[in-house]
């Protein structure tokens, strides 16, 4: 027991020191990539809990990220900024009244997202498999349409800007550690075992006493919480948000990440995020004029990146780590 907490403290301290050093010595461009990477790790790890570990093929994250981003943005903007920005219609009294500082705003974002997930669970978990995917996909669209049309709450398609930029690398690092710890603690508990049991054989799980609906709802709410927090961090990092950022493409990108890393593997999701998010940045040199030609090739990195993805999926059908964790594989080799 105390061994567990000592290990957790040591790892957290090491990561935070590393991030502090990075912030001091790396240039702002690299730090920006690391910040982006951190947010996507939070999103991918939590998305993997419902999609990989519990095996529920849901396509909801863009909806929850949008909720988180808007809640944080509306909480961080002060009254005058809101009155300035809301062009399409006047902000509602409720929107004007709410205000909080950074960390509470993030937590509220997470809680709002998971409450929405709780209500949504009653509707979406009536169906399984492909139908679940379609229903959750619909949810993402509803949230976006809400953001575009309810301009007294969201300023419509104009979006929100001037959100205070408090999401630095340290804060993102703290939330990355929290999300990974929470998700791993769930996976390595009776809840995680029940989630995997539902993924492997839902009927058998029910037949030996697993409350399938409850476990699915727990997974869904936990996912939604960290997607909400991730959305909040994103809003504060980018300082502007608009409905178009939270289209299905965001979900799609996360889906690529978790499938690439291995559905059900938390360390796989982290690895997948690094490959996809950092890979896209590091391949930028391909777009520039190079050794072979003097003209630039915008989009060439996307071609190369696609080829890399296809190659990885050809040789590792179940993703890089399958449903194993990095430490499982290391243990076997011993």
């Amino acid at each position: 027991m105390s061994k567990y907490f000592i290990r957790l403290a040591l790892i957290s301290a090491a990561v935070m020191i590393l991030l502090y050093i990075s912030m001091q010595y790396l240039d702002s461009y690299t730090v920006m990539i690391l910040e982006n990477l951190g947010i996507f790790i939070i999103l991918a790890v939590s998305y993997n809990l419902i999609n990989g570990v519990t095996g529920q093929f849901s396509l909801e994250p863009n909806g929850f990220v949008a909720i988180g981003a808007y809640v944080t943005a509306l909480l961080l903007l002060d009254k005058n900024a809101k009155l300035d920005q809301f062009m399409l219609s006047d902000p509602s009294d409720f929107i004007l009244a709410i205000h909080s500082s950074f960390v509470p705003a993030l937590l509220i974002s997470g809680i709002v997202a998971s409450l929405v997930a709780f209500m949504l669970a009653f509707a979406v978990f009536r169906v399984r498999g492909d139908y679940l995917a379609i229903v959750t996909l619909g949810f993402g669209f509803i949230i976006r349409i809400f953001a575009v049309n309810q301009s007294e709450y969201t300023n419509g398609s104009m979006g929100l800007s001037g959100i205070s930029n408090e999401a630095n690398l340290m804060w993102i690092g703290v939330f990355v550690l929290i999300s990974i710890t929470v998700v791993l603690n769930i996976v390595y508990s009776k809840f995680g075992r029940a989630m995997k049991a539902i993924r492997d054989d839902e009927d058998a799980a029910e037949a030996i006493g697993v409350d399938v609906f409850k476990i699915k709802t727990y997974a869904f709410m936990t996912s939604a919480f960290f997607e909400g927090v991730g959305g909040g961090l994103m809003a504060s990092l980018l300082t502007t948000i608009s409905p178009e950022q939270f289209s299905f493409m965001l979900t799609f990108e996360l889906l690529i990440i978790i499938v690439l890393g291995g559905l059900g593997s938390i360390s796989g999701s982290i690895l997948g995020t690094i490959i996809v998010i950092a890979g896209m940045e590091w391949l930028r040199f391909l777009d520039e004029p190079n050794f072979f030609s003097d003209t630039a090739h915008p989009g060439l990195r996307m071609v190369v990146f696609s080829v890399i993805l296809i190659l990885i999926m050809l040789f590792a059908r179940k993703g890089i780590l399958g449903n194993k964790e990095l430490w499982d594989i290391v243990k076997v080799k011993k």
């Binding site: 075992r193 054989d201 799980a205």
Partner: peptide
Amino acid sequence: RLFDSMSVLDNVLVGFDSRFKYNL
């Protein structure tokens, strides 16, 4: 109908699920 991705011990532990007395 065993849970294919899990170890034998974990399969049996899922059977104990409703007897565990800790919450999320």
